[in-house]
């Protein structure tokens, strides 16, 4: 029983990180129908920016803020430089461009910072554990859950309560109709990249602390898992991405905790295939949106 609770808690933390990344994937897909393959690498850049801040002696929150802001700007630049002009040509062209950006970010980091695994300095986030009813709660878990919760609440607020959020939802439903309302589609797309990439940076920092690892390819696996989570939840759906992330994290953790750690990564893909066979639009997906 304790074991189960322990695994669920671990799964919840990992799932939250997946969810933060998956939300970015799904928002960007929702607005321009592009699988942003570079999204995973933005996580990595975020982790490095935070590492740089930490090494300069900045605390956790300022580091998080700087990482988020830098990656938000990086996201906007990526969209402007690599996607905006190829998007109208074809989806395949944009996808190819995204893969190019992904490789570029990975190898530029390797070139300048090396491929060594780095970790955050010891005092950056001193670890503590608490034992409650036999379940070990690490303050890393609290950090991850707390940060995710706060960010998700802010995101919900932006999307459902602000004028910009309304414009984002309108553009993702029907870009031309949104233009007819005076919405500038290009800036709305840029804002979406800004927000999605900021969330990815936060996920990068959390991932780096949680697994004690910062390296140039660290974004690949969580990026892929988060993509699966987004598809699982129904690509384009923000609540779906969150649900998909949490479910995936929990399932992986349960599989790993009960003797299947070798199959941990395979599980994500198996779940994905099963869900897509049974419910091709994902758990909360609305299916192909009717665009008259």
């Amino acid at each position: 029983m304790h074991d189960l609770l322990q695994q669920l808690l671990n799964g919840l933390s990992q799932g939250s990180i997946y969810a933060l990344i998956a939300v970015g994937y799904t928002m960007i897909y929702g607005i321009i129908q592009l699988i942003n393959f570079a999204h995973g690498d933005v996580i990595m850049v975020g982790a490095y920016v935070a590492l740089g801040c930490a090494l300069m002696g900045l605390g956790l929150i300022p580091s998080l803020a700087i990482a988020m802001l830098s990656c938000a700007i990086l996201g906007v630049i990526i969209e402007r430089v690599a996607y905006r002009r190829v998007r109208p040509v074809s989806r395949l062209a944009a996808l190819t461009s995204a893969i190019g950006v992904s490789l570029f970010l990975e190898y530029i980091m390797m070139y300048f910072l090396g491929a060594d695994i780095r970790t955050y300095p010891a005092g950056f986030f001193p670890e503590r554990t608490y034992s409650i009813f036999g379940v070990t709660i690490n303050n890393k878990d609290l950090l991850v859950l707390g940060t995710t919760l706060v960010l998700v609440i802010i995101l919900q607020y932006i999307i459902y309560r602000t004028r910009t959020g309304k414009a984002m939802r309108a553009v993702s439903f029907d870009g031309q109709a949104a233009q007819l309302m005076g919405v500038n589609v290009n800036s709305t797309v840029a804002i979406t990249f800004f927000i999605g990439s900021a969330l990815a940076a936060a996920a990068g920092l959390l991932y780096g602390i949680y697994f004690n690892t910062v390296q140039p390819l660290m974004g690949l696996m969580p990026g892929l898992k988060a993509f699966i989570a987004a598809v699982l939840g129904g690509i384009g759906s923000i609540p779906g991405a969150m649900l998909g992330g949490i479910l995936l994290g929990m399932t992986e953790s349960l599989v790993a905790g009960f003797g299947g750690s070798m199959y941990r990564d395979a599980v994500a893909f198996i779940i994905l295939i099963l869900v897509l066979l049974i419910r091709p639009t994902g758990l909360l997906g609305k299916g192909v949106q009717e665009k008259v």
């Binding site: 309304k166 939802r169 309108a170 031309q176 309302m181 008259v292």
Partner: peptide
């Protein structure tokens, strides 16, 4: 008012009208 109406079917009636006032 475009052909086929093109309302934002995923938003509420109120939100559709508010989008009209977006500018």
């Amino acid at each position: 008012v475009p052909e086929g109406r093109r309302i934002f079917a995923n938003l509420t009636v109120m939100e559709n009208l508010e989008l009209g006032a977006y500018i």
